[in-house]
C-alpha cells in the first residue's frame, strides 16, 4: 500500500508580519543596514576631519543638508532599537555563575545596558565639554 500524500504547507511571503516576535526580529535584522550606515558615516567624518579644513567644511555642509539630518535621525532610532534588542538577548548567550549561583538574565541584560549608557555618557562628556 503506498502512502497517501501528506499536505506540505507553503510559507506565506508575509510570514514575518503575522507574529509580533517575528516582526520585531525582522525589524532588528533590517536595522543592521542603519548600523552599517552609521559606521560608514563615521568613517567619512573621520576622513574629512583628517583631510583639512576645506574638506571638513564640505563634509559639514553635506551633513547639514536636510535629507542627511533626516537620515541620521532615523539611523539613530534604528541603531538604538538594534542595540536595545541586541543587549536584551545577551543573557541567552551568556551564562554567568557566581559561586554556584546563576546570575539571572535581567541582571546580565541590565549590566550590558548600564555599560552601554556609561560609555555613551563618557563619549557625550568628551564631545560636549569643549
Amino acid at each position: 500500500m503506498t502512502a497517501l500524500p501528506s499536505y506540505r504547507p507553503r510559507v506565506h511571503p508575509l510570514w514575518w508580519a503575522r507574529r509580533r516576535a517575528y516582526l520585531v526580529f525582522v525589524l532588528r535584522e533590517l536595522t543592521s543596514v542603519f548600523v552599517a550606515w552609521s559606521a560608514a558615516y563615521l568613517v567619512l567624518l573621520a576622513r574629512a576631519a583628517l583631510a583639512g579644513d576645506a574638506e571638513y567644511a564640505e563634509f559639514r555642509a553635506f551633513a547639514g543638508s536636510p535629507w542627511v539630518v533626516a537620515l541620521n535621525v532615523v539611523a539613530l532610532a534604528a541603531t538604538a532599537f538594534h542595540s536595545v534588542t541586541f543587549l536584551n538577548l545577551a543573557p541567552r548567550a551568556m551564562v554567568v555563575r557566581l559561586d554556584g549561583w546563576r546570575v539571572p538574565g535581567f541582571l546580565i541584560a541590565g549590566g550590558n545596558h548600564s555599560a552601554w549608557l556609561a560609555v555613551s555618557a563618557l563619549v557625550a562628556y568628551l564631545v560636549l565639554r569643549s
Binding site: R19, A21, Y22, F25, E29, L89, R92
Partner: peptide, 9 residues
Amino acid sequence: CTFVGECTS
C-alpha cells in the same frame, strides 16, 4: 540560527 528566540518562548 538567526536568533529569533521564539523556540524558547
